[in-house]
Design a protein around this nucleic acid. Structure first.
Length: 603
DNA sequence: CGGACAAGCTGA
DNA sequence: CAGCTTGTCCGG
């Protein structure tokens, strides 16, 4: 008899079934099955076997074995994650299950470490072809760009040191190649290597295969991973990939927000992978130019030498705009000179459209919506105005004096492109998240999505960095530094000659000091103090609870603090995650709509 | 979730 | 009171 968790929304409950004769070999914990439940057939997972069902219930037999599912250890881990992030186990088990039915596993390849790798913890023969083939993780393949700092091989002291620990956080500068860590982990056996994006995983998998490592690319090669003998490489959900004999975990760019699952439960792949490594008793190495405070609290920080870290960052130039002539708008002399000088320049402004806020040029009144009083933005075609709150449109006329000449207080990317083109004297193209090809222009303007689209640039300009530095999200400072590291990837290390230019009215901000000095550690102390002072993570644990059923939080406590509701959202604060999870376990299990976001992305 | 069943509403 | 909607309950 087995216990089954049905894959049915709003039903976080298990039911017991009889395993029909002769099915025993195909049914184990994690197996994906179909069962009849209340007159219909639904999918689900076996979550326990050899169970004693409650008395007085006539058990039904399993209806069907769909195929392989997550191994028992991952079912257990899924239950932990569902508790830790206060969401349904079902959602986590979906992430841990193969994309389609897996009827059988392929034969396992020869163990990945037969290719002459050293035994664990011992620096042995140098691995083949490591230092010769570095590529940045975001390169679209092909030959090595010249602007990448020379990679250390898998026997670099930093790599050896990291792999010899239980929990290592390696502050790898932006231009450094993470590959040697992946290869060194692969030489230990079945390693799990996570990257923020699928493309990076594909790249890394290709390079590992080139070095003779058997690789399963998640989620496509789920069955191959489950068969064992392969290194598993993938993006966020690969944290749930089967790895039968886990030997090591490496998380590339562990600070990246892409590791956070957006749907509830909002698990984070680095934390899942780290817990997995802990349970398996193997090393977990987080790589990041800018580790988060949570990560620094979790593991041992290993930083390269000052000279190595400096070499892995480009020059970062701060343009102090505190005394700038307001008529110069977003364009300092420095930026104008740079865009005229040639080369590929990427200008970043995190504001879409033509203008996000307008004032009357005649009377100075802010343009507001007549219906809801919200601020008005200019439509992309330049004609009408649109309310940012209620999305109603109206003509571009001042509601106070009737004048039609308007001043743009917060120009957006579309308008900035026109202005930059006039200043640059050469074509300037706007790149948005949804334009599917990169325009062929020397100067590109876009939101930060441009940094994701572009492989390389000679310079990256942040036209208004203060909105990143001063954003109200509590992680704003870390996110701003992450933005600078992404820009650094495009322009390469110090030796490559590229640069980052940052326009700001807060030139002394720790984020900027950290980037200028190529030392993310300069942000850590002040930021940690700020978070502790405001009782924000990692000093506390937070969750945002919303939806029709969210009212239950009002009765929570003691031990947790409940704020709100504002806009139908409650903020729940606890001294630590165990307390938070225990409190949120009181959430109604079924029925009305409820969203629980532990470690909220915004706030 | 979605089916079953009960209680409530409506119109002839 | 049939026929339909709405609400509540429950699943092995």
């Amino acid at each position: 008899m087995v216990r089954v968790l049905p894959d049915v929304a709003a039903l976080d409950k298990t039911f017991d079934y009889v395993v029909p004769d002769g099915w025993d070999g195909d049914v184990r914990i994690g197996t994906v099955v179909r069962v009849s439940l209340h007159g219909r057939r639904v999918g689900g997972w076996v979550v326990a076997d050899g169970v004693t069902p409650p008395a007085g219930i006539r058990l039904r037999p399993l209806a069907k074995v769909t195929g392989w599912g997550p191994p028992a250890a991952l079912v257990d881990l899924a239950e932990w994650a569902a508790w830790r992030w206060a969401g349904p186990v079902r959602a986590v088990l979906r992430s841990a299950s193969p994309p389609g039915a897996v009827r059988g596993l392929p034969p396992a390849p020869a163990p990945p470490n037969v290719a002459g790798g050293p035994p664990p913890n011992v620096a042995g023969a140098p691995p083949p072809n490591v230092a010769g083939a570095p590529a940045p993780p975001n390169a679209a393949g092909g030959p090595t760009p010249p602007n990448v700092a020379a990679a250390h091989d898998g026997n670099d002291p930093l790599t050896v040191d990291a792999l010899a620990r239980h929990r290592a956080v390696v502050r790898l500068p932006p231009a450094a190649d993470p590959y040697p860590f992946a290869l060194a982990a692969a030489r230990r056996g079945e390693a799990l290597v996570l990257t923020p994006s699928v493309e990076q995983a594909v790249q890394l998998a290709r390079r590992l295969r080139g070095d003779g490592v058997p690789v399963a690319l998640a989620p496509r090669d789920w069955a191959r991973a489950a068969a064992g003998g392969s290194v598993v490489v993938g993006a966020r959900a690969a944290a749930w990939s089967p790895v039968p004999d886990l030997a090591a975990v490496v998380v590339v760019d562990a600070h990246d927000e892409a590791y956070r699952e957006e749907r509830s439960p909002t698990w984070n792949a680095w934390e899942v992978a780290a817990e997995r490594a802990r349970r398996a008793g193997v090393v977990c190495v987080l790589l990041s130019p800018c580790p988060t405070l949570e990560q620094l609290a979790w593991g041992d920080l290993l930083a390269p030498s000052r000279s190595t870290e400096r070499a892995g960052w480009p020059a970062v130039e701060i343009v102090d705009r505190r005394r700038a002539d307001p008529r110069s708008g977003l364009y300092s002399d420095r930026v104008v000179a740079l865009i005229r000088s040639g080369g590929l320049v990427a200008c970043i402004l995190n504001r879409k459209g033509r203008a996000r806020l307008l004032a009357c040029a005649a009377c100075g009144e802010l343009l507001r919506c007549e219906h809801c009083d919200g601020g008005l933005a200019q439509n992309d075609d330049g004609d009408g105005l649109r309310c940012r709150r209620c999305t109603r449109s109206r003509a571009a006329v001042c509601q106070a004096c009737g004048a039609t000449r308007l001043r743009r207080l917060r120009p957006g990317v579309t308008r900035v492109r026109e202005e930059l083109e006039a200043l640059a004297g050469r074509p300037v193209a706007e790149v948005t998240g949804d334009s599917d090809h990169l325009p062929d222009a020397g100067v590109l303007v876009g939101t930060e999505a441009l940094l994701h689209r572009l492989g390389a640039a000679d310079a990256v300009v942040f036209l208004d960095f203060d909105q990143e530095l001063l954003a109200s999200r509590y992680r704003a400072a870390e996110q701003a530094l992450a933005l600078l590291t992404r820009a650094a990837r495009l322009v390469g290390g110090r030796g490559a000659g590229g640069r980052i230019v940052v326009q700001t009215r807060v030139p002394g901000h720790e984020v900027l000091r950290a980037a200028v000095h190529a030392d993310a550690g300069r942000l850590t102390g002040p930021e940690l103090a700020r978070r502790a002072d405001l009782r924000l993570p990692p000093a506390t644990a937070l969750a945002v609870v919303s939806g029709d059923a969210a009212g239950f939080v009002a009765a929570l406590g003691p031990g947790v603090e409940v704020l709100g509701p504002t806009d139908g959202r409650w903020l729940v604060r606890a001294p630590d995650h165990a307390t938070l999870a225990a409190a949120l376990a009181a959430a109604p299990r079924t029925g009305a709509r409820l969203r629980v976001e532990v470690d909220p992305a915004r706030e």
